[in-house]
């Protein structure tokens, strides 16, 4: 019978309906009449073939065959003859193995710093968590911190993970503790590395991360490459003081043979204390002007539904075992459960364990179709990161300002239809 993937969402507006997939952000628009016909077929438990046979007009039959193919293409319908794959495998598990750090970056969303904080777990406790992670076969495991390489047992942990895990193992580090004596073993144990740099030279990097970091990181990159290891990303968090260096940052990465990642600044952790300094209030860039340079087809193609996987496809396990939806939703109110309470991290067990915490409820309330945006017909296109909603949900003025700046244009982008091409009559 015809049934949609559990991550599918429908939005009705006037005589049009959008069916989209939160898993990949893709969507398709059809008339309400078509949707209602399809819905009738679904409610009756019809198969695709049975539904097609209910259509008397051959054009309609062809149209719905085409629609089914498109819905299959965006994973809303299962491949023909196969049951729906409501895949609940974790895509990405972050494991912060310490909250200590040897740097004290001014924008750190984790508030990690030297001389304070804790490792949280013993080596054996960490092994136990790694066993649980490996058992549920996530696509990607990222070891992070704090600065993970500060732990005395860091290489023991990495080797233990590598021996048991065949997926993609990545390391998120500040890159200052890589040296000629440990680079070879590091390069053998991980698949990729993400090093924070936040600048293009000593001055710009030191402003954010402290003196001497720039040279140390570029040296670490060279050491890794000397070992034949090239899957290296360098990241920069975009703040007022380095925004003008973005192009240079891309050029630097090209020269170094690394991949550039530019992230938006999140005012949480130490970043919250520094937010007025790092990103003082700007007039919001005119959304209409920003989007006005592009044609409708391009904008609709680019505008995906919210695919945020926080708590659904990805989680962060903190140094003390607390589990959060992602690295940016690490406040107590979003704690989903503790890894120490779980026999396994498999989805169904995980979801049951979360029931005794309020984190899931608070996370659900951030989703645009559950929040104060629930009646808006572009809500799932307006937010791409639930942490943005978290920052704004209690600030009525800022929330309304953001909404006002984009809602009209977003409605126009999502719900408009291209002008029909005039037929030439000969």
């Amino acid at each position: 019978m015809i049934s949609f993937h559990k991550e599918s969402r429908t939005i009705e507006h006037g005589n049009r309906v959008i069916i989209g997939n939160l898993k990949n952000g893709q969507w398709i628009k059809l008339s309400k009449e078509c949707y209602q016909a399809l819905k009738q077929g679904m409610d009756l438990g019809l198969t695709e073939e049975q539904f097609i046979n209910c259509l008397e007009d051959p054009d309609d039959q062809n149209y719905f065959k085409q629609l089914f193919e498109k819905l299959r293409y965006i994973d809303i319908l299962a491949p023909q003859g196969k049951p729906p794959q409501n895949n609940s495998r974790w895509k990405h598990i972050y494991f912060a193995i310490t909250n200590r750090c040897n740097l004290s970056c001014i924008h750190c969303c984790y508030n990690a710093k030297s001389g304070a904080g804790a490792d949280g777990m013993t080596t054996d406790e960490l092994f136990s968590v790694i066993d649980k992670i490996v058992q549920c076969s996530p696509e990607i495991v990222t070891i992070s911190g704090g600065e993970p390489m500060l732990r005395k047992d860091f290489f023991e942990i990495l080797a233990y993970t590598r021996q048991r895990y065949e997926g993609k193992l990545t390391l998120s580090t500040n890159g200052t503790l890589i040296h000629s004596r440990n680079v070879r073993i590091l390069a053998r144990l991980i698949d990729s590395i993400d090093i924070s740099l936040d600048g293009v030279d000593e001055a710009s990097c030191a402003y954010i991360r402290g003196p001497g970091v720039f040279d140390k990181v570029t040296e670490s990159v060279r050491l890794l490459q000397k070992e034949g290891f090239y899957k290296i990303s360098l990241s920069m968090v975009s703040v007022d003081q380095n925004k003008h260096l973005e192009e240079q940052f891309h050029l630097l990465n090209k020269e170094l043979g690394t991949r550039a990642i530019v992230r938006h600044f999140s005012p949480i952790g130490r970043g919250y204390i520094q937010k007025d300094h790092l990103s003082p209030f700007h007039e919001i860039q005119d959304f209409e002007t920003a989007t006005g340079r592009f044609d409708l087809e391009f904008l609709q193609s680019a505008a995906s539904m919210c695919t945020c996987g926080a708590g659904k496809k990805e989680i962060l396990i903190d140094y003390d075992g607390s589990i959060y939806p992602c690295g940016l939703l690490i406040q107590d109110r979003y704690k989903l459960c503790s890894v120490h309470e779980l026999e396994t991290l498999r989805h169904e067990v995980f979801e049951r364990s979360c029931a005794s915490y309020s984190g899931t409820k608070h996370l659900d309330e951030l989703w645009p179709d559950h929040s104060k945006c629930k009646d808006c017909k572009v809500n799932l296109f307006c937010w791409s990161c639930l942490q943005h909603m978290d920052m704004l949900k209690d600030d009525e003025e800022a929330f309304n300002r953001r909404c006002k700046s984009r809602k009209k244009q977003l409605y126009s982008i999502i719900w408009s239809e291209p002008e029909p091409v005039p037929q030439i009559i000969r």
Partner: peptide
């Protein structure tokens, strides 16, 4: 049994968006 004689309102181009 469901019987649909003719759909009168169709968006002719069923394009996938949001890629």
């Amino acid at each position: 049994m469901l019987k649909i004689v003719k759909i009168t309102d169709k968006i002719e181009k069923l394009d996938v968006k949001g890629q």
